[in-house]
Nucleic acid binder design. Structure first.
Lengths: 299, 299
DNA sequence: TTTCATGGTCTCAATAATAGACCAAAAATA
DNA sequence: TATTTTTGGTCTATTATTGAGACCATGAAA
């Protein structure tokens, strides 16, 4: 095993497999001179002629020894390749990659990962962050979780869960402006804006009109997470997505100044998959767990 | 097949086979750092952990993936090794290599190769030329044929055949100096010298004294073949070995100026073998054939 | 407690592999 | 029949890979 010229044997096996030096070179993605050199060195090392001696240089014919070595080396290398591929399959079998926005990742998914991994210890979860989810499958993840108005064409879409919108403020701002806020009056209190059109103040104002709401001023963030952080830090009042804010509301870090008023958003989150991706047990198991997790928190 | 890190897989298989990095390094005759490096690079390339993570650096434990790859890679590499060894056995079974001097090869062995190969078509003969045969087995040939005073210590020696010495001249020189040479007179005719002490003019002069023989002048060759070629080309008179000159004498290209006078050299040629070499049928068959060939020409 | 054996890492040198250029010859094409 | 294309082969220069050597930390053995 120690001195086997493995690269030369691979080149030889490739020639045997593909029928010539140049097809083998294409197979291995090297130049034909590299393959030719391997063959000569293999013959020299073995002390055996692997090809029939022929006048002119045209289309190698394997000697009986060459045939025997060709079969054996191809078989061995293919077995190695299979073993390696099997490991790779297994690795892919065990791990999944979820793509979603930073906000959703930080505020909903990450806190639930330990529970997912405890329920299915054999599944290894990775999260890929994409600021802007495209309308196309990128192939870098097993599935993505999107907010928005699905389903989307050319993609496999399943509704994951609904959501609700309601305003939130930090505790300190609440203590300071309690009276005013209780009168549905935002005069002198700035609104924090989310660039996500589904979470725009306009939709709130239409349902629950507020005095002094200035739609044109106030900081704008592309990230719902940043929106909520700003609110927690008493920088204004934010229109929060329940799914992202619920934990902070429960802990008191955020306060709902207008009571239980809310705007429902049905089918606000979607599981989105590449229609051409091969179905894998780990992926479907994880999706099932996520659905179960969201249905338990329904209502 | 194209991107398989074959050397890393071999290192890994060796670790699997031998139980550790350092035993594997000894097996492969490299340093343990080389093996260690291969292992890390293999893991990185595969994206799979092949060893259990353990505190401290003590005795690698294979992960299930490592076990699987270890079995597969060891099996594949052993199959490759078997195939290669099988070819080598086949080669060794069918082919022999004879080592001898250029002169003997050119003038005695080569002309007889067709007959040997016709008698034993399954034996493939190679000839290795060594100007100076050493007193040690070099391992690069199956046996050697030596001229000289054997046997030699630490080697297996069998007498092959005797020889005889007699002077020869080219045909033209013979026509030109016929009268003088018939009178055993070399005055004005130069002697051609062989550096082989067994073929020195001194031994001829002692037995059959010649007039005008100058032992100190005339060209000297280390090759008996060159000596005979020079004689054929009428460059002087040479003291020939019968075994090497017989064919030229028979064809008339060389003439024996002093009739049937000759000096016998018993046991002039020896079959010399490495005492530790494994006995192979092709080798013993070839030696038997050579002995039979020489006994047929005895007398 | 000291020594030995283990696996790991890094840098530098040596070796192996590869690309690119050129060649000759056979097969295919016009 | 002549020309073009494809084949395998070889050589040199460059690049990549492999290995050695030195050093380290840690656990087991003496």
């Amino acid at each position: 095993m120690k001195n086997l010229p493995l690269n030369a044997l691979r080149a030889f096996a490739a020639v045997y497999d593909s029928g010539g030096v140049r097809p083998a070179a294409r197979l291995l993605e090297v130049t034909h001179s590299s393959v030719s050199r391997h063959l000569r060195e293999l013959e020299a090392w073995l002390g055996v002629e692997l090809f029939e001696k022929r006048e002119g240089h045209r289309l190698l014919i394997f000697s009986p020894a060459g045939e025997a070595l060709g079969r054996a080396s191809l078989s061995s290398l293919r077995a190695l390749e299979s073993a390696v591929e099997s490991l790779r399959e297994q690795r892919r079998g065990n791990s999944i990659t979820i793509e979603t926005t930073p906000s959703f990742a930080a505020r909903w998914l990450l806190p639930r990962l330990p529970a997912l991994e405890e329920a299915h210890p054999w599944i290894e979860v990775s999260i890929v962050i994409e600021q802007k989810l495209t309308d196309q499958a990128t192939g870098t993840s097993d599935f993505s979780i999107r907010m928005g108005r699905g389903p989307w064409r050319d993609l496999v879409c399943e509704a994951l869960m609904d959501d609700a919108l309601y305003p939130v403020v930090g505790r300190n701002l609440w203590e300071e402006k309690r009276r005013k806020l209780s009168n549905n009056d935002l005069t002198g209190i700035r609104a924090i804006h989310d660039r996500d059109p589904q979470a725009a103040w306009q939709s709130w104002q239409k349902r629950y009109p507020l005095k002094g709401l200035n739609l044109r001023t106030g900081p704008r963030f592309a990230s719902s997470d940043l929106v909520l952080r700003a609110a927690s830090q008493n920088q204004g009042v934010a229109l929060a997505r329940d799914r992202l804010a619920r934990d902070d509301v429960a802990s008191g870090a955020l306060v709902r100044p207008f009571g239980e008023n809310r705007i429902e958003i049905p089918d606000a989150y979607w599981i989105v998959r590449d229609p051409q991706a091969k179905e894998r047990v780990a992926v479907t198991t994880a999706i099932d767990w996520l659905k179960k997790e969201t249905s338990l928190t329904e209502g």
